[in-house]
Design a protein around this nucleic acid. Structure first.
Lengths: 97, 97
DNA sequence: ACTATAGGCAAGTCCCCACTTGCCTATCAA
DNA sequence: TTGATAGGCAAGTGGGGACTTGCCTATAGT
């Protein structure tokens, strides 16, 4: 993962967005769990390595935090960086009309 | 501008984010105005064509709406698509207590 | 009409990103 | 210790995106 990974770049990929959806729905999944749920429940067919790299990007962006226990690594969704977007461009209640 | 431009892809570029900042600060600028303010106030040195393409991406993503009068084209920041992000991953939910 | 202004169009280049492929490390069970 | 499970590392490939370059269109002023 060369260089800084921004939240924006991390979100600019449908697979990563689905991963976030999946973690938001069921937090604390391992890599293999994510792989299987992505194929069965989301119709995506990506290899383990691809998903692993996606998780690396998400983690580098701070959108996913991990916890390693034994030979397993659990992934948790961290929505905090998303607040940065709302902070930069306050959407407010007054959208364009 | 091939295919669909998502909000995420539009935001995945620092120049485009600065353009949004600039429009949020001073709405309704033309292409040449944006070019000059970007160089003078933001230290960016991009050609007119580059900025034009960026504005095209932002417009395709719905983040910028335009209005053409005479030979000028005015650009307006539209934060509405940003609400989609907050809608997909509600940030404040789990910390709201 | 002529010229300058404001912007668009399209081909080409370069680089980054997603994904694959192959192999390696570490942990647990038998 | 052996084998299976869970995951990591790194080189290579293909395609898309940012940017340039050059030329074209349209409006406004004189």
């Amino acid at each position: 993962m060369s260089g800084v990974v921004t939240v924006f770049r991390a979100l600019d990929d449908e697979t990563r967005r689905v991963i976030l959806d999946e973690l938001a729905a069921r937090d604390g999944q391992t890599l293999f769990e994510i792989c299987s749920t992505l194929t069965t429940r989301h119709g995506l067919s990506s290899t383990r390595q691809a998903i692993s790299q996606h998780l690396g990007v998400l983690e580098a962006a701070g959108l996913v935090v991990t916890e390693k226990r034994g030979r397993s690594k659990f992934h948790y969704f961290n929505p905090a960086p998303l607040a940065e977007i709302a902070r930069r461009w306050p959407v407010g209640e007054r959208t364009a009309e």
